[in-house]
Design a protein around this nucleic acid. Sequence first.
DNA 1: CGTCTCGTTGAGAGTTTTCAATGTAAGTGG
DNA 2: CCACTTACATTGAAAACTCTCAACGAGACG
Lengths: 208, 208
Amino acid sequence: MPVHSNTPLLHYSKIIMFNILLQHIREKVSLEPEEAGRLETFFLPKELARKEFLLREGEICRYLAFVSNGILKSFTRDEKGQDRISLFAFEGWWISDFNSFINREKAVLNIDAVEKCELLLISIEDYERLTLEIPVMDRYFRILYQNSLVTKDRRLMVSNKSTAEEKYLSLVRNNPELFRRIPHSLIASYLGLSPETVSRIRKRLLLR
Amino acid sequence: MPVHSNTPLLHYSKIIMFNILLQHIREKVSLEPEEAGRLETFFLPKELARKEFLLREGEICRYLAFVSNGILKSFTRDEKGQDRISLFAFEGWWISDFNSFINREKAVLNIDAVEKCELLLISIEDYERLTLEIPVMDRYFRILYQNSLVTKDRRLMVSNKSTAEEKYLSLVRNNPELFRRIPHSLIASYLGLSPETVSRIRKRLLLR
DNA sequence: CGTCTCGTTGAGAGTTTTCAATGTAAGTGG
DNA sequence: CCACTTACATTGAAAACTCTCAACGAGACG
């Protein structure tokens, strides 16, 4: 069964959130009005306070989340308690531990809110039903994932064999908005560098 | 217009290659016999000798390639003429410069054959027509890309903040068959490490 | 037998991390 | 509004890691 929100408080904001989702879908595929109406019933609205967790390592990731508002990050925590950020998800992005979500395995990722967030959640069961009942959503996700693969390929190439400075500059070029909204220490973690190294790179670049 | 092979020599081998493709598709989605028949007309068979190129940096990547047989690699070449391998594609995999293929931009990747290959090629026009005419192919590619995202995420996490030894061990665990079929120097390039470092890691691991 | 490719080994150079100390800005409770 | 705490950023010095360069060895192939 699709999940419904019966919470009156959330009702108004869910409409807004859902319209943001619809808009994003319609950038990639065209939806019949009937389909658009049905779509809403698959999603559950959720608010997340700053630093609140959506998912913890070891749990089964039950939801794929669409970000209507705010920023989340996904990360692993190593033996020494250091975080390695794998992704920042901004408005209009989707986030989850994909492997856990799809294959019902234990999550290796943690996901929490960098800023207060408004999310639309869909469970794996509804995700599967959604793509079967509204086939154009297969197309939507196909295009979404296709684009995502392109950006991940780029990141992988940069990450694999670049100096710290090249990694930093590549991020400045490709994701400048990240620097306006995310603390430098988190950016360092995202780049796989120590905060000190990033600080020194920034200094070096300013001196030029 | 879909591309056809009229080369008699290739005819028999195309049937085999195409059956391999069909089998891979049917692992993910179910196809009507009529759809399966139509599917074939979208693909162009191609053989590639060892070290022969499928794509060179700077060209527009015209084809998405399904590997029926053999191994290819995609890589960038840096200023010093050193290769950085981004992917090995084995039997049953797809390979291309995705950004170039989808967005008709210049390729940043080279693709060549590590071993003699048999491929089935589909052009971007036919790829788009294919997903429109046989919608279940949207679903096939959605699932394919979904899985691909999972593995790329893993690689990115490893690549981002691990020691050389951790990267090596992670590859041994996740892709042992790679070590049976690929020279160590290429594996080093794939891991973003120098061949010397990989050699030393192997030695260190043997001594334990 | 010579050549070529691939892998190994050593030493030195360069880069990045770690550890520790200090500085700075923002938010909190009195 | 101030003192205090907390989070974030900078800086320096030493340690650790990986790369580069160079030499050498082993096996494949003509």
